[in-house]
């Protein structure tokens, strides 16, 4: 897999083709009214959770920096986009860009000082920043404090959601597989050795952090424009934990794992709705059981990709 692969036009076309087919199929189902609202909502949740999990996985899984403040960046993105679209009445794309930039900026401001901390100290510092963002939002009258902003137009349509997921995955996967990515992974494997080999570890840690935060902001913008209301309480540390659960459950450092876990957790949450009394107990039991039997996560740090499916397509590898 590490060797350069030759460009295989047929395969490339097949893959793009399948993406297009999935997109059009769901789009058709939605516009023909065949996919009821409940499935649509869960589909949106799945897309948003995939973006969150994949982006946190870049920070926690590939860079090895334990961050517990992901919900904070999501909040920054959500509020930034809503200020653009609902307050200033600008188009959604402006909101999305504003969300990404604001969250990336927040990631930079928070990342530069805190990323020199290690392990649990970093975890608690990021948790702290996440909570600070929430408390500050709660005290800003411009965004209605704890009541939050309601009446946000539903602009996160299927093309936006699907497109965002594809872009997030493509950017992060390609980042991880670039020379930057190798530097980032070297930080996780052994920070001191990486430093000695001439890798500017701080730079790569901040880079991963900023990119991760940016996509969390994107997820925040999509969330805000799907679920009609945002309020600071939604983005508290429990939300950060939820995202962390997905990442660890999928397998740290596995993008496919993060995606599978995001789908799994969203579907599990929805499926447990019908057992209101014991919902959270079941969730807890499932979580603990999965972790005990599969501590490395569903995928470990492997990826599900061409290697697994190459054979199906007659690849030699």
């Amino acid at each position: 897999m590490q060797k350069t692969q030759h460009f295989k036009p047929v395969q490339f076309i097949i893959e793009v083709g399948i993406l297009v087919v999935i997109f059009t199929l769901v789009q058709y189902l939605i516009s023909a009214g065949l996919l009821n609202q409940y499935y649509q909502i869960n589909l949106a949740s799945i897309c948003i959770n995939i973006i969150l999990a994949v982006s946190l996985n870049l920070i926690n899984g590939f860079t090895g920096q334990l961050s517990l403040g992901h919900a904070g960046f999501m909040a920054v993105g959500a509020y930034a986009s809503v200020i653009m679209t609902t307050y200033m009445e600008l188009p959604f794309i402006v909101g999305i860009i504003a969300a990404c930039l604001a969250a990336a900026l927040a990631g930079f401001i928070i990342g530069v000082p805190t990323l020199r901390l290690r392990g649990d100290y970093l975890a608690i510092a990021t948790l702290g920043f996440g909570e600070i963002i929430r408390v500050v939002l709660q005290n800003i009258d411009y965004v209605n404090g704890p009541a939050g902003i309601m009446g946000i137009s539903k602009l996160s349509t299927w093309p936006w959601l699907f497109g965002s997921v594809v872009i997030t995955i493509l950017v992060i996967v390609n980042l991880v597989n670039s020379s930057y990515g190798r530097a980032i992974i070297s930080v996780r494997e052994d920070e001191v050795a990486a430093e000695l080999m001439g890798v500017n570890t701080t730079k790569y840690k901040v880079l991963a952090f900023v990119v991760g935060a940016m996509f969390a902001g994107l997820a925040g913008a999509l969330y805000a424009h799907y679920f009609y209301i945002i309020k600071p309480e939604t983005f508290n540390f429990m939300k950060s934990f939820d995202i962390l659960v997905m990442v660890v459950l999928g397998g740290l450092g596995s993008t496919t794992g993060a995606i599978i876990a995001a789908i799994f957790i969203t579907v599990l949450t929805a499926a447990l709705q019908s057992f209101p009394a014991i919902r959270m107990i079941l969730y807890a039991v499932i979580l603990v059981t999965v972790m005990i039997y599969r501590p490395q996560g569903l995928m470990g740090n492997r990826e599900l990709g061409r290697r697994t499916f190459g054979r199906l397509w007659g690849d030699k590898k």
Partner: peptide, 8 residues
């Protein structure tokens, strides 16, 4: 992994 179990 243990941390996630603790959350569970």
């Amino acid at each position: 992994a243990a941390l996630i179990t603790a959350i569970g």
